[in-house]
Amino acid sequence: MTHSDEHTGRVADATSGSWVYSALPAGLRPYAQLARWDRPIGWQLLLWPCWWSVMLAANAPGQPVERWRIIYYLALFAIGAIAMRGAGCTYNDLVDHEIDARVARTRSRPLPSGRVSRMQAKIFMALQSLVGLGVLLQFNGFAIVLGICSLAIVAIYPFAKRFTDWPQLFLGLAFSWGALMGWAAMFGGLSAAPLLLYAGAILWTIGYDTIYAHQDKEDDALVGVRSTARFFAERTKPWLAGIYTASVALMALSAYAAGAGWPAYVGLILAALLLARQIVVLHIGDPDQCLALFKANHIVGWIIFLGLVAGAVENWL
């Protein structure tokens, strides 16, 4: 870290302008860093499949949904996404403690830098998990069981980079679970629409996290960590083209299965154009650009969400 980073305790890949460094006392900053509160893009990307799923359910004709429930569930999923992403990152850091100490981008994190003990991290993880449990218990029984089932995938994910070239698939399975949860919370069951949305969201996650992983591929090679970035290598662009195309196609099928209004498809077309631009401009040897393109997927999430919102409104009119 630079001298200014040492003073603030900022980790190497965090945004210097984050509220974490201006609003929190120094003693709390390491915990905020464990939860990645200084990098909101993670919980935002975790949230989008949840919000898409809620609004996909709101698009379904013949299944009346109270408007207040839509707003209430959107708020619950926002709280849950922040809490569970924080708990997941804390768990991931506990598992990857030794690997993070050997990677330039991560060695300044609270655990490898010694600013938080393993016991303190475990207690903090438990507290965040309790918040997530509190959110989960607001839903129906089916959604509660479904949410608990996701923990198996979450537990496996940090180890995936050790045994497969596709750890991004396991991230997709975990990060996209909300595509099932929103629909389940609204209707107490599942159908083809949320399953197709889940599949599309998994592919979207593989795509954006492949771009993200290109930042670390040299260090990953040194420590023996596997990723789709290393596996695709110079073939990353054609792989991304196929993955993103399949992702948007599955989401379009999901919208069709749900009976979504036409604005939902406009949103998907605009999102597809943004994803195509990512592929065209991507330079896998430029870590700063890889990070910027990864973060740009928050805009993709917004566009798909707003299309589904407009589709629901169009159906209500």
Rank of each mutant, 00 (worst) to 15 (best):
P25E: 05
P25F: 00
G27T: 03
A32H: 06
R36D: 08
R39L: 13
L47K: 02
S53H: 06
A60R: 15
P64E: 04
P64C: 02
E66Q: 07
R67K: 03
R102Y: 00
R102E: 11
A104P: 00
R105G: 04
S108G: 06
S117P: 12
S117K: 15
R118N: 07
R118M: 08
R118A: 08
M119N: 06
M119K: 09
L127V: 14
L130A: 15
N140Y: 06
A143T: 13
G147I: 03
I153L: 12
V154E: 11
I156H: 11
F170Y: 12
A174I: 13
A179M: 09
M186K: 04
A192G: 12
L197V: 13
L203H: 13
T205R: 09
H214R: 00
K217M: 08
A221R: 09
G224A: 10
R226M: 10
F231S: 06
A233L: 06
R235I: 09
G242K: 02
Y244S: 01
Y244I: 03
Y244N: 04
A246V: 03
V248R: 09
M251K: 13
L253H: 12
A255G: 10
A257G: 05
A258W: 07
G259V: 04
G259Q: 04
G267V: 06
L268I: 06
I269Y: 05
V281F: 11
G285V: 00
P287S: 11
D288G: 04
A292P: 00
A292V: 08
L293T: 08
A296M: 06
I304E: 01
F305D: 01
L306A: 11
L306K: 02
L308D: 06
V309S: 02
N315E: 05
L317D: 01
